[in-house]
């Protein structure tokens, strides 16, 4: 790892120069008392002192609605694939959201590479930033609290009177050299970084009472737990948890015609496995008719199905679903209840 240090004022002018010189820059912006990733017009828009954003930066890699093809009807129809990949610098991405991007990189990059995701991904520069956990964050339980060098181009941490900058890629190094004044890190800076990390870890309160790597095995034994009935009875099937999750990537596809009825687009849109008709086929048969089977499916994707396939938890511990669920369903309570049940049964 290469570690550099910037004075705080230099970080501001770095961001200012990025905004002025790069084709597009986005970052956490305050909106109605919350934070959202949005376009930065100037460095004043950027608010790095944030806990979480409503939506994760996934929306820049996999937009809520995206055109896959554009076509003109006729004999023959003319069809053009669409790959939109606007260059973008995303500033202020927290470690859990970097892990979320690791997850979507795996899912979209596996076997059949998703060309649309890949194009956007390659056009994006990620500048991570360290965070301030709230009562819902449980990143330390899933091991997503530390920034992994391969997951960012640059990563900044506020160590009090200065900021450290980790360099994760050549692209990051080039940006830093071009636009920023920085110096080499001293032993004191390193100590400051460690101290900051320990303080953050200590501030994370919510936790899973189990080694996350044990979860695929645990879930093997609790698929018929009465807890799923209870959660199913509470769940409103609103899809909020899917909507806000950095690692939910299911989608629907359909055609949209323009008013002239000659030109149209094939569109994909975010979909959610907790919505009633996610698994309904023509003819009306619903393969996950009950809310309990949909909630369970979502948890099994995060902690077993995809975890077994890709080796790490597909939940980043960001706490967004905990914050947005009107029925107060959340991963720490769910997992801990399942764990307690499994332990009771063993005893």
């Amino acid at each position: 790892m290469t570690l550099r240090v910037m004075e705080k004022g230099d970080l501001a002018s770095f961001v200012e120069r990025l905004i002025a010189s790069e084709p597009g820059a986005v970052g956490p912006v305050r909106k109605d008392g919350k934070h959202v990733f949005a376009r930065l017009a100037s460095v004043e828009d950027l608010d790095l002192a944030y806990t979480t954003t409503l939506l994760p930066p996934k929306k820049y890699l996999f937009p809520p609605q995206e055109t896959l093809l554009r076509f003109r009807l006729g004999a023959p129809p003319v069809v053009e694939p669409v790959l939109e990949a606007p260059p973008l610098v995303v500033i202020g991405v927290h470690p859990c959201d970097l892990r979320g991007i690791w997850a979507t990189d795996r899912a979209f990059g596996d076997d059949h590479v998703d060309t649309n995701y890949r194009a956007r991904r390659e056009a994006i520069t990620l500048i991570g930033a360290d965070c301030l956990p709230d009562e819902h964050c449980f990143c330390t339980s899933v091991g997503s609290h530390l920034p992994e060098p391969a997951s960012f181009d640059l990563f900044v941490t506020d160590i009090g009177d200065a900021v450290t900058v980790e360099i994760g890629s050549e692209r990051g190094r080039a940006l830093l050299e071009r636009y920023a004044r920085s110096r080499e890190a001293t032993a004191a800076d390193l100590a400051g970084l460690q101290k900051r990390r320990h303080a953050k870890e200590a501030a994370v309160k919510a936790r899973l009472n189990v080694d996350v790597q044990m979860l695929p095995l645990l879930l093997e034994s609790v698929s018929t737990s009465p807890l799923w009935e209870q959660l199913g009875a509470k769940c409103l099937s609103c899809g909020n948890c899917n909507l806000v999750c950095p690692t939910c990537y299911c989608f629907d596809v359909g055609d949209l015609m323009q008013l002239n009825l000659e030109e149209g687009e094939r569109i994909r849109r975010w979909d959610g496995c907790t919505l009633v008709d996610f698994a309904t086929v023509a003819g009306g048969h619903n393969f996950r008719r009950e809310a309990k089977s949909r909630v369970r499916h979502r948890y099994y994707r995060k902690f077993q199905y995809l975890m077994t396939r890709y080796g790490r938890s597909f939940c980043t511990g960001c706490g967004r679903c905990s914050r947005s669920c009107l029925a107060h369903i959340n991963p720490p309570e769910t997992i801990n209840a399942l764990l307690a049940e499994a332990e009771r049964e063993e005893a």
């Binding site: 596996d110 989608f251 629907d252 496995c273 698994a279 099994y300 396939r309």
Partner: peptide, 24 residues
């Protein structure tokens, strides 16, 4: 087995039976 399918290439998530992608 039939399931709802939107992509056929293991991405859209619709066709899953437990952890198995029916389209794959």
């Amino acid at each position: 087995l039939e399931r709802r399918m939107k992509c056929g290439v293991g991405k859209c998530g619709h066709c899953q039976i437990n952890g198995i992608y029916v389209c794959q």
